[in-house]
Computed example of a mutant assay.
Amino acid sequence: MNRTLQYRGNAENAGMRIGDFLRSQGYSRHVIIHLKKTEHGILLNGEWAYVGQTLKEGDVLEVHIIEEEFSEQIVARELPLTIIYEDEDLMVINKPADMPIHPSINNYDNTLANALMWYFEKQGQPFVYRCINRLDRDTTGLLIVAKNILSGGILSDMSKKREIHREYLALAEGKVPESGVIDAPIARKEESVIERCVDFEKGNRAVTHFWRLDEWNGYSLVRLKLETGRTHQIRVHMKYIGHPLTGDYLYNPDYRILDHQALHSWKLAFRHPITGEQMQFRADPPWWPVGTEFSGF
Rank of each mutant, 00 (worst) to 15 (best):
Q73E: 15
V92Q: 07
I93W: 05
E86S: 06
E67W: 10
A49P: 01
I93R: 08
E67K: 08
I66R: 14
I83K: 10
E67D: 15
L81Y: 09
V92Y: 13
A76D: 03
Y85I: 01
E68G: 01
D59W: 02
E88D: 15
V60D: 02
N94C: 08
H64E: 10
Y85Q: 03
M91A: 11
G46A: 04
I66T: 08
E88K: 14
V51Y: 07
E72H: 14
G52L: 08
D59T: 04
P96S: 11
G46T: 05
E88P: 00
Q73N: 13
N94M: 03
I65N: 03
I66G: 03
Y85N: 02
I66K: 13
N45Y: 04
I65R: 07
L55S: 03
G52Q: 12
E86V: 02
E62G: 03
K95V: 02
P80L: 10
P96I: 06
F70H: 10
F70W: 08
H64A: 10
H64C: 11
R77I: 01
G58H: 09
G58P: 06
E86D: 03
V92A: 12
E68L: 14
V60I: 13
Q53G: 02
D87Q: 10
W48P: 02
S71P: 01
E78H: 13
L81E: 09
I93Y: 06
Q53P: 00
H64I: 01
D87N: 11
W48R: 12
Q53K: 15
M91R: 12
I65C: 09
E62A: 09
I83S: 07
L55I: 11
E72P: 00
T82P: 00
Y50L: 12
G52T: 14
G58R: 10
L61F: 05
R77N: 11
R77G: 00
V75T: 08
Y85W: 09
I74M: 05
T54I: 05
E47F: 11
S71T: 15
E57A: 12
P96E: 10
K56Q: 14
I74L: 07
E86T: 04
T54R: 14
E69T: 14
I93A: 05
N94H: 07
K56T: 06
E67Q: 15
L55P: 00
I84A: 09
L61A: 04
F70D: 06
I66M: 08
N45H: 03
L90E: 05
Q73D: 14
G58M: 07
Q73W: 10
A49T: 06
T54A: 07
Q53T: 10
D59F: 04
I66C: 06
V60F: 00
Q53H: 13
A49S: 15
I65W: 06
I83G: 06
D87L: 11
G58V: 04
T54P: 00
V75H: 11
H64D: 06
E62P: 01
Q73K: 15
E62C: 07
R77D: 00
E62W: 03
Q73M: 07
L90N: 06
V75W: 02
G46Y: 08
S71K: 05
I66A: 11
E67T: 13
I65E: 10
